[in-house]
Every structure is written in structure tokens, then in C-alpha cells.
Design a protein around this nucleic acid. Structure first.
Lengths: 355, 355
DNA sequence: CGCGTCTGCGCAAACGTTTGCGCAAGATTT
DNA sequence: AAATCTTGCGCAAACGTTTGCGCAGACGCG
């Protein structure tokens, strides 16, 4: 309600002086600044963001995350963690978070374009990056500040990104299972060209190449992202394949949990018949029985870093582009174990294997 | 980049006419409007929100959700569902969603005050309402449009709210368990005066009164909201109590899941020794073994309704206050069953009870 | 034909803030 | 004592949009 002019009037000053005092300008003496500060406090003054924005040419205090689609992040705690982290990271710099939903019938790209041209935000965070990503291309072409969570495949241009090191993690997953005697692997992926799919796949492919063990086999299974029934079908087909893989490396936890469910319905014991690993450490992973062995990339913290990086970018648009590759932590639970013995198929002997 | 003046110049019109044409004013002929529309399209014009906001006195297109604290909604899919739903509801009305995090060392109330005075949003959504809620009092006093998700206890004033019918649900939970022979009940609650705690508690208390069965006992256990270790301790104390309750009604899923975990660590079988119910149907509830019997209040849809209601409120601030009480759906899973027989304590006889 | 009404549009003010420029009075230097 | 610099502050323009008022021309009516 109170404006800068109210303060000016109350103190017998001009609006300019008040503005400068509030901003901490050099030519304003400490005494005046204190008076202004006190009066502002007393009148409950808060600057009108719209006005600041208008004169400054920028939106003054909003940075956005575009929700790629209504299903995004709803599988588990992921989006909640991410938003809380991003919110904290942005709040540290006094920037508010703005979330753009995609209205029915609009494309994400058109929403982004609209945000840029209407100056509704100073910067943007992009999630779910795909191998070639038109959103990145567009934002690069406009010079609008942005940070991606995840990367695109091309190194042709440089931009700010934060990502988790899926390659390292999936290499480690393979090594863990290989050491436990597994040789028949399956990689459960999705049918969308997300960049993380590429990196994680590379992780196990490279690990296999390093071993150079001719006994190792890797079969791929590709599940749809959003259709639970078809997803289950894909997993079931995989588990019914002969010879059955002994270890399923899933691209992320919700796929791994589907494996757990299907295995249960097929009366397969995890980990005695089948080892399963995931990625993300969503909260269901801890609740599932057996608990899911997975990787924790600390969504909250990496989102906070993303926020900080975006603020830095907004403040200094010409600075060198930074990137952050976060190594996830292996979370050992009960969904993995020694490979079932090759020679015998009697399951009853293996009871109570792992504590 | 393009402004209204660019369109005006290109068409030989004045800015006022362009503005009116875009807004669909009555005195502008169809022909002119079409020309303006075309030119706007061609120039990639999007109105500068800050300018609109400044002249309109409102923020023009932002409605906010205040994240009550960094832990809020991170236990599971709740916040993700909520945000996606709210975003959709607001997007339908062309309103963007703005999320305010609480910076270190600030109170939620001060953040809200700041939003109101700086006109950063046109309306606010409040979650996690407590029995008496200073945020509601403050917003009522300012006349700022808001909708709460959850209620306050007092009927003294009227405001817009959306809530789930916890009283009905917890009554139903009691009836379900009572019919299965349970008589020793425990209600697992939290140590914070949230309004939903009151309503849900009332649900079982009233159901007990309706039965008027002197055999029924109800013990309360109160867990801390955020300290997992102490929460486990409280649950363990409860399950070690003699005589042990045969049915634990938990205030929400994450508490119920704690019961499941502690029961497992105590080698108690759920549901043979103990029945457990929750509320919310978070995704972990389906993954837990046994699956958690709970109530689904369709977070996504109720959040969308909240968004719609807020938009209505913003558009017509003087309209009658509306409210929406959503009956949740019972989701039957495997965490509840017949009460263990009173006379015998041999557990082995009860194997394979429920399919 | 004279009067009133309607139509299509422009002028200018206003929203609250920032900021370049300028000015007077005092302080410092030469 | 004159010249220069510094300090403390105000004037006014600008950001892009909306909107009340007004004006000229066209039109309708008697």
C-alpha cells in the first residue's frame, strides 16, 4: 500500500532520494539512509515489483521452472524435492520462483516463448532435457538466461547445466552386480530420447566393454513412459524371456519398482532369482519390499545449486558458463544379491541369503 | 521485445486503439481488430506483464502458493501432485503460478505480508492450515484474495476453502476395522495443531460414540512431525504397549508407513497381528509390503479445484464465499484384516489369511 | 436541413520506480 | 581569495500499458 512517495512526503524528501537511500547509493549519507529505512519500516513499505520491473527491463525477481507436462514429477517425491530445493536456491538471491504449467493444447515451447517475450521471468530452469532439445536451441538464440537440469547431447554450444553422473552410477551398478556373479543383464529403458537415458546406457555399455567378458550378455527392454499397463507388459515379457536375465538395471526407480511388482506377481524372488537396481532414490524405493538398491543424487541439493547457478547467470549474463556434474551415492538395500547358481534351479535351498 | 507502440506505428494507429483492439473493446470495429491481431502475431507481441500490473493495481497473472517450510510436501508425491493440479487449475484462467519459499530465518507470515504489500501476486493459496491460523487472520484483514487447502476451526468468518472430509473417512476406517473384530484401537497423530488432525480425530471419536461398545478402547500416540528417529520411538513404544492395540489408525500415510516399518522390525505381522490404515494414498502406500489401506483424496483434482476457486475469487472479490468438502475414496490393500483372536496367541495358524 | 446520436479513434494522465543530469552549498585545494 | 571538488539532494524522463475524456465525421430522425 505504501509507496516510495509516501516515505518521501513523510520525510520531506524527494522520491529519488528515497529510492537511492533504499538502494544504498554512495552519495546518500548514513543519517538520511537511516531515517528513510525507519520510515519505510514504519509505513510497512515494500517496493512495487511491477514498477521496478518496468523500469529495469527485467522482471525483477522471478525465475521460472516450466512443468513439462501434467504428469511430470508426479510419480513420487521427485518434483516436491526439486521445487523445495530450487525455491531455497532462488530465495537466497531474493528471487521468487515461478512455475509455468502447460495449458491444454499448448506446447511447452510456446509457453517458453511467451514467458520470454512477455518478460514474465528473468530466467528459466529446464527439466527433462532430451538429446536434441528445441527449448535449449530457442533460449540460446534469444540470450535469455537459463540453466538446464540435465544436458543435451551436443557440445556445440555452451550453456549452464546441472546434472547427475549417470554414466558413473550405471557403471558402478554393473560392476556391483558383476562382482556378485551376474552375467545375464537386462537394461530397462524408456521410449523417449532423454539425455539421461543416453548417459546411463553408456555407463553400462562402457563397463561391459571394460570387462571384456564374453559371458556377459545385455538385453534391452524399452517401456513407455506413461502407460502403466503397457509398462507392466514390457517388464513381464522381459522376465519371461528364456534364458531369463538375472539382473535388471532400471533407468530410474519407478521402472525398477515395476520390476519388483511384476516379479512378485510372477512369484519370482528378489533378490534370490533376480537382482534389481534403480536410480533416484525416491521415497517409495525405501518402502518397497525388498528395499530397492538405487542411487541417491540428492535432488534437493542439486536443485538448490541449479537455483544458485541461475541467479549467478542472471546477474552476470556474460560470465563463463558453468556446469556441475554430481556423483550420486549408491544406496544399498535388499533388491540385489548374488547371482542364482547356474547349475541348479532349486530355489528352496537359497532361503535367507542376505541379512 | 515488441511493444504496443510498435504495432501502433506499423499500422498508423495510436497505442490506445491497439490496446483496446487487443482487449476486445466494444467501440473498435472488427476490421481494425483483425489488422491489429495480425500485426501483433507477426511482430511476436506479448504484453509486458509488469506494465499491465502497474496500471491495473494488481499483479496481473500471478497467484501464489506459499511453501510453508522446506520440508513441506517432500515426504512423497504430495507436493508434486498438488503443484501440478494447482498449476492446471490456474492455467485454465490464464494465471501463472508463483511459489514462495521461506528463506532462512524468515517466518511464513512475513513472507505473506511481503507478497501482499509488494503486490507480487493477485491471490494466494494456503496449505497446512492449523486450528487457529494467523495467516488466515491476516489475509482476512487485508481483503486479499485467498483460498485455503484445509480449514481453520473457527466459523467466525467466511472464506474460501477446499478440504477433504477427514471426519467421514476416519469414521469409515473405524467402522471397517470394528466390523473385522477389532476393539483395541490406537490413533497415531502428530504434535502440531493442524486442523485436519482435529477433524480426523473427531471422525474416530464420533464413530466410537455411535457404537457405544464398552469393549472399545482408544489410545493416542503423538509423534513429532519431522524427527524420524523420535517418530519411530513413539511408534515402537505404542506397539510394545500391553495390551497391544490390534488396529492402528494413522493420521496420514507417512505415519502409517512408519508403523509398517516398526512392526517389521519387531517381527509383528501386518495384518495378522496388527491392522494399519493411513490417509492420502501417496505412492509409497502402494509400494509398501503389505500394501497400505488408505484413503485417496485425489490431491491433483482438489488442487485444481483450489486453483479454479482462487481465480473466481480474484475475478469477483465480493462474491459469496464458496467451499468444497471432498469425500475421499477408501483404497483397500493388505494392511488391514480380521482382529487376531482374543483367546489364542499362536500366530502360525493364521498363515495366508487374505488373498 | 438542423439536431442529436453513434462510431472510430487519439490525447494525455496515471501506475511506482529508477536514473542521468544538474544545482546549490559547503569543503578542499592552489 | 579564487578555483575546483565533493556532498546532498531534486527534476524530469522513461519503462509499457490502460482508460477517461474528447473530438471529428458519419448517420438517423423529424
Amino acid at each position: 500500500m505504501a509507496t516510495i512517495k509516501d516515505i518521501a512526503r513523510a520525510l520531506g524528501l524527494s522520491a529519488s532520494t528515497v529510492s537511492r537511500a533504499l538502494a544504498g547509493h554512495a552519495r546518500i549519507p548514513e543519517a538520511t539512509r537511516a531515517r528513510v529505512q525507519a520510515s519505510a519500516e514504519e509505513l510497512g513499505y515494500a517496493p512495487n515489483r511491477a514498477a521496478q520491473s518496468l523500469v529495469g527491463g527485467r522482471s525483477s525477481g522471478f525465475a521460472g521452472l516450466v512443468l513439462t507436462d501434467p504428469g511430470y514429477g508426479r510419480e513420487d517425491s521427485y518434483l516436491g524435492d526439486y521445487i523445495q530445493g530450487l525455491g531455497q536456491g532462488l530465495a537466497e538471491g531474493g528471487v521468487d520462483m515461478f512455475l509455468a504449467a502447460i495449458p491444454q493444447g499448448q506446447s511447452e515451447l510456446s509457453v517458453i516463448r511467451n514467458i520470454v517475450t512477455s518478460r514474465r521471468a528473468d530466467g528459466l530452469v529446464l527439466g527433462r532435457t532430451s538429446e536434441v532439445d528445441p527449448r535449449v536451441d530457442y533460449l540460446m538464440s534469444t540470450g535469455f538466461p537459463f540453466v538446464t537440469h540435465g544436458r543435451v547431447l551436443s557440445d556445440a554450444f555452451s550453456y549452464n547445466w546441472v546434472d547427475t553422473d549417470g554414466t558413473a552410477a550405471f557403471g558402478a551398478a554393473f560392476d556391483l552386480l558383476y562382482a556378485l556373479g551376474h552375467r545375464r543383464f537386462a537394461l530397462l529403458t524408456i521410449d523417449e530420447p532423454m539425455t539421461f537415458r543416453h548417459h546411463r546406457t553408456q555407463g553400462v555399455v562402457q563397463a561391459i566393454e571394460r570387462r571384456a567378458d564374453p559371458e556377459v550378455t545385455l538385453t534391452y527392454a524399452t517401456a513407455p513412459r506413461y502407460d502403466p499397463a503397457r509398462r507392466q507388459q514390457v517388464v513381464q515379457d522381459l522376465l519371461l524371456r528364456r534364458p531369463r536375465p538375472t539382473a535388471v538395471i532400471a533407468l530410474f526407480d519407478s521402472l525398477a519398482l515395476t520390476v519388483l511388482q511384476v516379479a512378485e506377481s510372477l512369484s519370482l524372488s528378489v533378490p534370490d532369482d533376480l537382482s534389481v537396481t534403480g536410480y533416484d532414490n525416491i521415497s517409495s524405493a525405501a518402502m518397497a519390499r525388498p528395499g530397492l538398491t538405487t542411487f541417491d543424487s540428492d535432488t534437493y541439493s542439486s536443485a538448490r545449486e541449479t537455483g544458485r547457478m541461475l541467479i549467478a547467470r542472471i546477474k552476470e549474463p556474460d560470465a563463463e558458463c558453468r556446469s556441475l556434474l554430481i556423483p550420486p551415492k549408491l544406496v544399498l538395500r535388499a533388491s540385489h544379491g548374488p547371482a542364482p547358481a547356474h547349475r541348479t534351479t532349486t530355489r528352496t535351498m537359497q532361503q535367507g541369503g542376505r541379512p
